[in-house]
Design a protein around this nucleic acid. Structure first.
Length: 393
DNA sequence: CCTCCACAGGAAGCGCAGGAGT
DNA sequence: ACTCCTGCGCTTCCTGTGGAGG
């Protein structure tokens, strides 16, 4: 029989593993001094009650964009007399209405409930900022906003009506291509200033890891070669600092499980595989139900191979869009739910592709006219196992 | 050539939840 | 209590597209 005492008294190599979590904002961000300074300079105008220029920040995931902005935001909001910087994740607040609502909720809590018209929120916003307030709205993952053109238009137009205050936008994105999908007017407005965050190099990652390991792990419990390896692996793959941190955290957990006192290269190598699966598991777990069902259908068919492809003498690696929908319908019956229409099923596929869980290619020379060929991003067995637990009761 | 297949994706509109105004 | 409004997820309907097969 194991007791909690036993577990707790086991020597831990962690001192404080929250330091290694992706949500932790460190007091100083290495290698981002110039970027932080630039953001501060832009934002500082608001402290003199002048409207700062809009800013657009581009950089790959885990290159410190969000961290840097949050860093500046903390400073700004602690100095600030009247103005306010608000952070919004556009994955959650993904429409003009929701963003306006969230902004206004900061000032007037009663506006939290839906049902208020957009003009109503707009009036309140103008009324509020006209008392000499500078509002800086940070829109993280700005490419997720469905009606961004309208939002930018609304906010820029609001500036014309506000007397004695202003609203500025800081947009953050890791999708370079989305710039071209914007309406030219909102593009020029949003891109008044543009910043690029380069991915971290192997040496920089080493430094970052070292800094966090010192705080998060007990002294001397991570071999320096393990840190170097984690940095090298990450730099080669993406330069994503979050990935590097996950890697070292997982390596620590693996070492801990094996009752080791020191994290070495071997643990990092093992962690590498686990992190891949964990990352996928995380996105899959937060997926809405129907998305999960579609994904499960794809995984299921991937394991059994494509019937259509076999019939037509195609590469069995790919699945046909049509057969996946059929399987999806089967699944919904099994869980006694109604299937969504084909139209929405297509939207689900788009979403899944956006998340990198599947890849799609148009069939080109199709036997049955046109179709889309679909392939799973990860290992079908892993994904199927993951989903089996969450879907079927 | 035309027509059909199997799909992509836009447009309209519906039901619902939750307001406001009367 | 009632009517009307809004945003959102969704369905229904529709047009478009490129190759296969007649």
């Amino acid at each position: 029989m194991t007791s909690f005492q036993e577990i707790l008294s086991k020597p831990s190599i962690f001192k404080d593993n929250s330091v290694l979590s992706p949500h932790y904002v460190p007091l100083n961000l290495p290698f981002r001094d110039s970027q932080i300074k630039e953001i501060m300079e832009i934002v500082s105008l608001a402290l003199k009650n002048q409207k700062p220029r809009n800013l657009f920040i581009y950089g790959k995931t885990g290159s410190g964009k969000t961290c840097s902005v949050k860093h500046v935001m903390d400073k700004f909001n602690s100095v600030n007399p009247a103005s306010l910087m608000i952070y919004l994740n556009s994955r959650i607040y993904n429409s003009r209405y929701r963003i306006m609502q969230k902004i206004m909720k900061q000032f007037i809590p009663e506006l939290e409930k839906s049902g208020f018209g957009l003009p109503h929120l707009y009036e309140k916003l103008i009324e509020f900022t006209s008392k000499g307030k500078q509002l800086i709205v940070v829109l993280d993952e700005i490419d997720m906003i469905k009606d961004l053109d309208e939002l930018v238009y609304t906010l820029t137009r609001a500036n014309d009506e506000i007397k004695g205050g202003g609203i500025s936008i800081i947009g953050i994105s890791n999708k370079l291509s989305f710039k071209n999908e914007l309406d030219p007017r909102s593009k020029s407005s949003l891109y008044e200033t543009e910043m690029v965050f380069p991915p971290y190099t192997s040496n920089q990652l080493q430094h970052i890891l070292l800094q966090r390991v010192e705080k998060g792990f007990e002294k001397g419990s991570v071999e320096s070669s393990a840190i170097n390896l984690a940095a090298a692996i990450t730099a080669q793959e993406s330069g994503d600092a979050r990935y590097a941190l996950k890697l070292i955290l997982k390596a620590g957990e693996i070492a801990q499980q094996n009752s080791k006192l020191k994290v070495n290269d071997e643990d990092v190598e093992l962690a590498r595989k686990r992190v891949e699966i964990d990352l996928a598991a995380e996105t899959i777990a937060t997926l809405p139900f129907n998305h999960q069902l579609v994904l499960y259908a794809i995984a299921f068919l991937s394991i059994n191979g494509s019937k259509y492809a076999r019939l037509e003498g195609f590469n069995e690696e790919f699945l046909f869009s049509g057969e996946i929908y059929e399987e999806y319908e089967n699944l919904t019956k099994k869980v006694h739910k109604k299937a969504r229409s084909v139209r929405w099923y297509k939207e689900y596929l788009n979403d899944l592709e956006m998340l990198g869980l599947i890849t799609t290619t148009p069939s080109g020379k199709g036997v049955r006219g046109h179709t889309t060929l679909i392939k799973l991003g990860g290992s079908p067995q892993d994904i199927s196992d993951l989903l089996k637990k969450t879907i079927l009761l």
